[in-house]
């Protein structure tokens, strides 16, 4: 079994995993960070989105061994201690979640979207969420949450 080492939420981790272990499985089962979810098996729902070296990625569509040496951030690593990330706060403030299952991946995608874009509007936010499916909210309050957080993150 290969040994894989990476930094997850600022902590160096290392484990022996079989080559066919998905990154999401490594995160959920080995590290017991269960905030990253699995909602589909065809790489579309986005419940598993994490940041790999600062870019959002679907952790169900990566092998753990591909993350060798990478910096991974999961939803558990987004807040600074007890200080929630503006995106997290904004989802609560704007009712951007209902059942919560897609929410963690949605927040991770949204943070990357805002980090990489200027002047996000309703249309570009909606397009930027192409890789995340929510069944509860109709997306309206998710878009609102991201708009509000984007202002906060710029400030």
């Amino acid at each position: 079994m290969p040994t894989v080492s990476m930094t997850v939420n600022g902590k160096q981790v290392s484990a022996d995993v079989s080559s066919n272990t998905l990154l999401v499985t490594f995160i959920r089962e080995n590290l017991r960070l269960t905030g990253t979810h699995v909602g589909c098996d065809t790489s579309q729902c986005g419940a598993c989105v994490v940041h790999v070296n600062g870019n959002s990625a679907k952790s169900c569509t990566m092998l753990a061994v591909q993350a060798e040496g990478a910096e991974i951030t999961t939803i558990e690593g987004l807040a600074k201690g007890n200080d929630l990330h503006p995106m997290q706060k904004s989802f609560q403030e704007n009712h951007g979640l209902q059942c919560g299952f897609c929410t963690t991946g949605m927040i991770m995608s949204a943070v990357d979207l805002v980090n990489k874009s200027d002047d996000l509007d309703d249309t570009s936010i909606r397009e930027g969420l192409e890789g995340n499916i929510c069944r509860c909210t109709g997306y309206q309050n998710i878009v609102k949450s991201i708009q509000a957080a984007a202002k906060e993150m710029e400030a």
Binding site: L33, G35, T36, I75, E76, L84, L97, G100, I107
Partner: peptide
């Protein structure tokens, strides 16, 4: 919401 937004659902 708190538990869901921090990944503790």
């Amino acid at each position: 919401d708190k538990r869901f937004i921090i990944g503790k659902g």
